[in-house]
Simulated assay, not measured.
Amino acid sequence: MFKTQFTKDFGVEFPIMQGGMMWISKKELVSAVSNAGGLGILSALTFETPDKLANEIEQTKKLTNKPFGVNLTFLPTLKPVNYDTYIEIVIQSGIKIVETAGANPANYIEKLKNNNVKIIHKCTSIRHALKAQSIGCDYVSIDGFECAGHPGEDDVTSLILIPRAKDELNIPVIASGGFGDARGFVAALSLGACAVNMGTRFMVTQEAPLHENIKQALLKAKETDTVLLERSLKNTLRAFKNTHALKVLELERQDANLEKLAPYLSGLNGKKMLEEGLIDNGLLACGQVIGLINDIPTTKELILNIIDQAKSIIQNQARLI
């Protein structure tokens, strides 16, 4: 059921991918997703050194014998990142699936491909997707405006981006941004995607390594409880609407520069918030799909429910013909 190019290429049971989320996409969640038949993705930069990433990869392998990948996000940071060393660790650890995001990964494509690593590049526009294809990426994950994290600056929704990407590209397309249940899953496949990528939905699962207070706050949230930040920096971020996020928004409206904003944008605030459960003490990337989440299942329950319900949806729709 639901065999696509994605399940064939990556050796997984279901065309469902877990997003590479900072501080969250760690061994507990990644192994659970992979064991449930999806594709788990570790977030490389969650680990402050390449050696710590190497250890997390090994620990994840002890928890699952199923395929999983590693996310590398190339974004402006206050602290420079030695991406070459992280990529060397990925290769040495035998990882064969890498999701890249942010800036153009062209400088790393050849090395990854020479080591038989399949590359999924996350894009927020058709022009970036075409560029990813031209430099040798194997897949594009197209990220609609609904998504958590960085939706780009064009503000185009998944409903438009997915079929546009399918029309323009010769490589497979993964639907990302706004997906969290069977209805979205079926819609994504209908629009031409070979899989869905879910981040926010996997945050609100039992295995996700974040404080219960945060999960409960997200459970109560609606689709209107996100806010767009960093627009003044041309680095738009969709985040959970909390006191911290609204403070950043207020500073931006006052034309605050990067120096003034930097203390509020630090990822360490978010890390502490997730660990201690202080919902208003940092920024938390969160998509509009939060409005569709009303339970905290295990990852296995989540994935199997999506697949079972998707089958029913398609069977019911077939009766309309």
Rank of each mutant, 00 (worst) to 15 (best):
67 P>R: 01
67 P>G: 07
69 G>M: 03
70 V>R: 12
71 N>V: 00
73 T>F: 11
77 T>E: 15
78 L>C: 09
80 P>A: 07
81 V>H: 00
82 N>S: 09
84 D>H: 10
86 Y>L: 08
86 Y>F: 10
89 I>M: 13
92 Q>W: 03
94 G>E: 05
96 K>P: 01
97 I>Y: 06
98 V>E: 04
99 E>I: 11
99 E>L: 07
99 E>P: 06
100 T>G: 01
101 A>Q: 12
106 A>H: 15
106 A>S: 15
106 A>R: 15
108 Y>A: 02
109 I>K: 04
109 I>P: 02
112 L>Q: 04
112 L>M: 12
113 K>D: 03
117 V>K: 01
118 K>H: 03
121 H>N: 11
122 K>C: 12
125 S>R: 06
128 H>I: 13
128 H>L: 12
128 H>M: 07
129 A>G: 10
132 A>Q: 11
133 Q>K: 03
134 S>F: 07
134 S>I: 02
134 S>A: 07
135 I>R: 09
136 G>N: 09
137 C>R: 12
140 V>Y: 07
140 V>L: 07
141 S>G: 05
141 S>A: 15
141 S>I: 00
143 D>K: 11
144 G>R: 05
145 F>S: 08
145 F>H: 12
145 F>Q: 04
147 C>M: 11
148 A>S: 06
154 D>Q: 15
156 V>C: 14
159 L>F: 09
160 I>L: 14
161 L>A: 08
162 I>D: 03
163 P>F: 06
165 A>D: 06
166 K>S: 10
